[in-house]
Nucleic acid binder design. Structure first.
Length: 406
RNA sequence: GGGGAGGUACCCGAGUGGCCAAAGGGGACAGACUGUAAAUCUGUUGGCAUAGCCUUCGGAGGUUCGAAUCCUCCUCUCCCCA
């Protein structure tokens, strides 16, 4: 039923950073094969942002690999830990979320997770189901398992502490909560990004303390965002969401620095090592095009990937209009009798600019054109006609529709 | 509990009575160029129908012709001592 150990290890070890400890994993796999019992593989996700992006999808894909190997994928939705806010890798306290935000995020998460995992075969737990029942004495007993010195050993805390950035007490509790999850679901393996290493190891300690066999900690690399140097994250705005429009994904991929292409291939596509190597041999622009397509293919279809690539060429190489220009309604009330509108006002009304000043700036900078004619005079009034195409910058287009009000 | 240092625009950070709508960097946006929403270079980056006016420097008051800068109180953070 299960593949042999070598084959399983080959798949498990692709694209990961570290296994603590590999001998324990081998042992667990051996026993699993012998007793024909799947391993319990844990991945915790805090619904802190409404979207899954290709960076935090890396460990999810790893979980999928285990699922494909016949093991039990276990998702912990950290609806309770999201309250606490994971301090890992951040340099300031995360804002605490409200119940509603967490609930909404959870919903979109599950939707999006279905793109990667087979949810029917996935065990899903909400950690609120145990934490909300917990007594204060139990909290104390959990907290007593950790020392301040060990917490402060962590690089992210040390940095924050040394540079005088506040660390709130509740942030210390986070790794313990994550570890407690491992006890509750009796995980054999836990997957996480390298920034999770500490928490994963705490899980081992806590399980051992409960006389359970400690979980194996499996860490995946962190993917840099589109800016090329910071970890991909929603809050930095350097992410590529798996649920984004294909053309949006494509554009964002095209904007990553060249030297990141290899890593993206490895972590964000299904390409094999040989395929990656051959991709890297062609012209860098073509490599990036292939990368963009490969990423889209993973979440959408082959066809949409092709279309997104073509569309990109049309807009940015040939400087033509995209095939579906979004429409913007302008009420005839705004245009008045003569059907004319101050250009600045038009930009604000159509949402391309939030203030008149910004609109004025865009116009003087030569960013604004109507039906391919660039307009640089901010005081100009333009006649508004249905069907005319307003372009702002290189990538923002809108077709104007005049709404007559009676 | 005692003492000290701080809170500046989207972020970091200079500024310690007028020359401050506030240096510098990052980010963002725009233009040129190109292999792309890469890289590089240049410009813009509080609001306002725009030589001018209005609102910003944790909050509330006060001193002054004039305050981000001085004073008082409040509030939050950091450091040292206990």
């Amino acid at each position: 039923m299960f593949k042999n150990i070598e084959e399983q290890l080959k798949i498990i070890k692709r694209g990961i950073v570290d296994i603590v400890r590999e001998d324990e994993l081998v042992d667990k796999l051996r026993r699993s094969i012998k007793s024909n019992k799947p391993l319990r593989i844990k991945l915790g996700l805090d619904p802190t942002a409404p979207d899954i992006h290709i960076g935090n999808a890396v460990p999810i894909h790893k979980l999928r690999h285990f699922q494909e190997l016949g093991h039990t994928a276990i998702l912990i939705i950290g609806d309770y830990t999201a309250f606490v806010g994971d301090p890992s890798g951040v340099n300031k306290t995360r804002p605490q979320l409200t119940h509603k935000e967490i609930k909404d995020n959870t919903k979109t998460y599950l939707n999006q997770l279905g793109k990667i995992l087979n949810l029917e075969k996935t065990e899903i737990h909400y950690n609120s189901s145990w934490f909300s029942e917990m007594k204060f004495t139990e909290v104390i007993s959990l907290v007593s398992k950790m020392t301040v010195a060990r917490m402060l050993e962590r690089d992210d805390f040390t940095k924050r502490y040394n540079s005088g950035i506040p660390i709130s007490l509740h942030e210390f509790i986070y790794p313990l909560m994550q570890g407690y999850d491992s006890i509750m679901i009796r995980s054999d393996v836990e997957i996480g990004g390298t920034d999770q290493t500490f928490s994963l190891l705490v899980g081992r300690d806590l399980q051992r303390d409960k006389n359970m066999e400690p979980q194996v900690a499996l860490t995946t690399p962190l993917l840099e965002g589109t800016d090329g140097n910071k970890k991909m994250s929603k809050s930095l705005g350097n992410y590529i969401g798996i649920y984004e429009e294909p053309k949006e994904i494509f554009g964002k991929v095209m904007s990553i620095p060249d030297n990141l292409m290899c890593k993206y291939f490895e972590l964000a596509t299904d390409a094999t090592q040989e395929e990656i190597e051959s991709h890297l041999k062609v012209h860098p622009r073509q490599t990036k095009v292939n990368l963009g397509k490969a990423i889209i293919r993973r979440y959408h279809s082959e066809e949409t990937a092709e279309r997104a690539a073509k569309e990109f060429d049309r807009i940015f190489k040939e400087r033509k209009l995209p095939d579906d220009v979004s429409q913007i309604q302008i009420s005839s009330e705004d245009t008045g009798e003569n059907h004319k509108l101050w250009l600045v006002k038009l930009l604000v009304l159509s949402g391309f600019s939030s203030t008149n000043g910004e609109a004025r700036r865009l116009i003087t900078q030569g960013a604004v054109s109507i039906d391919d004619k660039t307009l640089t005079d901010p005081s100009v009034e333009v006649e508004i006609k249905t069907g005319m195409v307003l372009k702002v910058g290189k990538r923002r287009f809108a077709k104007i529709i005049v709404n007559s009000t009676s």
